[in-house]
Amino acid sequence: MRNEQLQEIMNEYDIREPEITFIRHNENRTYKVVGHDGSAYLMRIHQPLKEGMAGQQHTYDGLLGELQMLEHLSGWDHLLVQRPMRNRKGEMITIIEHEGKRWNSSVLTWLEGRDLQKDDVSDPVLVEKLGACIAELHKFYGSYEQEGLDKRPSQGLAYNLYMIEVIKQGLAKDLFTSSDVSIIEETISLVNARLVDSGNVEAWGLIHGDLSLGNIIMTSDGELSFIDFGFFGPGYHYTDVAMGAMMVPSQLRDTYLKGYYGNDHTGQHKLVLLEGFMLLAIIGYYVFQMENESVYAWMRERMPKLCADFCTPYLSGARIFYSV
């Protein structure tokens, strides 16, 4: 994308003489922008690298839902997040034309800091803080009322069934064996059955939906900030809790759960459900990358290990929370 076109976008936000630096192109094209006064921003062109990566989060209404939520969350005192900018028309989305198509673009304030690293989560104090921060996010979501959530990605029972169908496409692509696909189907079906049996109404709400070390910023004073809310939408809180647990070493996972749940975190019922959501999170990565040929070799190599080391023991009733 030409620098002149990027500058035109920033002009819509009255950001003059911008210095624009390309970051990456994955789910979106992203750029760091520094204005003439030194203020920094994140510009996003919501054009996924592969067509198969496109989803509701890229549509105008879907993106608007994310930005409206972020605008409210940025005014909440308990968590530090990026704030969406409004253009000259007072809108949070600027539509552009590129390569003969129309794309949505948005601008967020910049967060100074660095991605959370593996070494960081060896600190028990930080691990407990991570759990507490996810709990604070869910607390905000519990009080947040917004229309149009049907335009956002939803990670519920129906999405889990959809994942089964996508994984089956791996057979035609010669990525997975039929036995491994069957194991994945049994695993997802068991998770769904346990959710239905237990009800878990209290665990359904809004979630980040894509927590990872790369989607958490640690500031210079040690604060944690969540970024990349592209999968924000309805889902089970277990999704975020499980994703957080997988960032943390096995010996600190109880500390992490204490941060999220408080002292009431040792119930086997919760652990069984969290184990299932850990596996769903891993399977979800395969689903998201199904059209990305650059990771096919990795997928072929890793799927048998996922099934043998984790899914099969899970199906047999073994505890895997501390080993995934």
Rank of each mutant, 00 (worst) to 15 (best):
V191M: 08
L63A: 14
S250Y: 08
G233P: 13
V295Q: 01
T255R: 14
D309I: 03
I207E: 07
K32T: 09
R16A: 14
K118A: 05
R114A: 08
W110K: 04
E202H: 14
L49T: 00
D180V: 06
Y60N: 05
M290D: 03
L274Q: 10
V196D: 09
H265D: 03
I45G: 10
L70D: 04
W103G: 07
D37V: 08
L161V: 08
G62D: 01
I283R: 01
D61V: 06
I23V: 15
P234S: 12
S182Q: 11
S250N: 06
L130S: 01
L171Q: 08
E186Q: 14
T94H: 11
N104E: 15
T94S: 07
A203G: 03
E66V: 15
K50M: 08
G55N: 00
Y41T: 06
Q117L: 09
V196E: 14
G230L: 12
H269M: 08
Y261P: 02
V81S: 03
K101I: 11
N263K: 12
G113L: 10
N11W: 10
G90H: 03
R302S: 02
L130Q: 00
I93P: 00
G35I: 05
L206S: 04
I15W: 13
E136P: 04
M243R: 03
L315V: 09
K173M: 10
R102W: 04
K305M: 07
A40V: 03
E186G: 02
E185G: 00
L130G: 03
E145Y: 10
P84W: 04
N200G: 00
W110Q: 15
M53R: 13
L116W: 04
L224G: 04
K258M: 07
L116T: 12
Y144K: 05
